[in-house]
Computed example of a mutant assay.
Amino acid sequence: MNWRVVNASDVGTSHIAAGRGCEDSSWASVDRTSAGLEVLSMFVADGAGSALRGGEGAELAVQAAASFMAGALAHAEFGINDALAVELVVAVRSHIYAAAESTGLTARDYACTFLGIISAPGGTLALQIGDGGIVLDVGKGLEVPIVPMAGEYANMTHFVTDEDAVKVLVTKAFTEPVIRAGAFSDGLQRLALNMATNTAHEPFFSPFFRVLSTAPFDQEDELQKALQRFLSSPAVNERTDDDKTLVLAVQQA
């Protein structure tokens, strides 16, 4: 299996106006288990605007996820299941809580959403805490496996740093590997999803997947720069003033 992956983030115009930087973070990689099986991992975290160090929390979350995956893949037995998702979230939380303790702050000061996709020949797992979104195709067309989470009140959501994060964690498992996949922060939700039906907006994703499906492996830098330009374009900034992150993966034939 050959996956082509690309990810990028761009600061929102409202953050620029407020003198803040981008508080999104992402990570995407294709690695191998100890048995030699390829595994795709892609994660997105979005720092809470109300948190003192939300952007740092998002970066810590994806760093912890990457470290967790490296350790999990080294095990003789690697399974993609709900237990893996729970262990991943616990690892992310532990990393953020340790950072908070070392600085004399609280975990809430590092609050961020967290979502991702893990896929291997034997199956795929989507997991999510908070808003933002996931789209994937395991052979039945592009679908939204998890409805983006809203909090109890308007403009609120759940965070991986919340005490009940493991309880509110939502997962969706598939027995097939992904053919196409995307993960994004909530700054792109209204562009990437039909919010009324919680379905993927195919015209948004199709051009990206078409390019990735034929892109040579030596064009990774060019793909990342092109995605960055798209996220910072007037066409996108006219639709959203929030930070934007997009991670994409396509399985090439």
Results as ranks from 00 to 15, higher is better:
residue 97 Y to C: 12
residue 97 Y to E: 14
residue 98 A to P: 01
residue 99 A to K: 05
residue 100 A to D: 03
residue 102 S to T: 12
residue 102 S to D: 14
residue 109 D to H: 06
residue 110 Y to H: 11
residue 111 A to F: 01
residue 113 T to F: 08
residue 114 F to K: 03
residue 114 F to V: 02
residue 114 F to H: 08
residue 115 L to I: 09
residue 115 L to K: 07
residue 116 G to K: 03
residue 116 G to S: 02
residue 117 I to C: 13
residue 122 G to F: 14
residue 123 G to Q: 09
residue 123 G to T: 00
residue 124 T to V: 01
residue 125 L to M: 14
residue 126 A to F: 00
residue 126 A to R: 01
residue 127 L to D: 06
residue 128 Q to K: 05
residue 128 Q to E: 10
residue 130 G to H: 01
residue 131 D to G: 05
residue 131 D to L: 06
residue 133 G to W: 01
residue 135 V to W: 04
residue 137 D to C: 01
residue 137 D to V: 00
residue 140 K to R: 13
residue 140 K to S: 14
residue 141 G to F: 09
residue 143 E to S: 12
residue 145 P to A: 06
residue 150 A to D: 13
residue 152 E to N: 12
residue 152 E to A: 15
residue 152 E to D: 13
residue 156 M to Y: 06
residue 156 M to W: 05
residue 157 T to G: 03
residue 157 T to Y: 08
residue 159 F to R: 06
residue 163 E to Q: 12
residue 163 E to W: 11
residue 165 A to H: 02
residue 166 V to A: 10
residue 167 K to W: 14
residue 168 V to Y: 06
residue 169 L to M: 07
residue 169 L to F: 04
residue 172 K to T: 06
residue 173 A to Y: 12
residue 174 F to P: 01
residue 175 T to V: 12
residue 176 E to K: 11
residue 176 E to Y: 10
residue 177 P to F: 00
residue 179 I to A: 03
residue 179 I to P: 01
residue 181 A to P: 15
residue 183 A to M: 03
residue 183 A to W: 00
residue 184 F to I: 08
residue 185 S to Y: 06
residue 188 L to K: 04
residue 189 Q to K: 07
residue 190 R to Q: 12
residue 192 A to Q: 03
residue 193 L to H: 02
residue 194 N to H: 14
residue 194 N to E: 14
residue 195 M to N: 09
residue 195 M to Q: 13
residue 197 T to V: 11
residue 198 N to V: 10
residue 198 N to L: 00
residue 200 A to G: 02
residue 200 A to H: 00
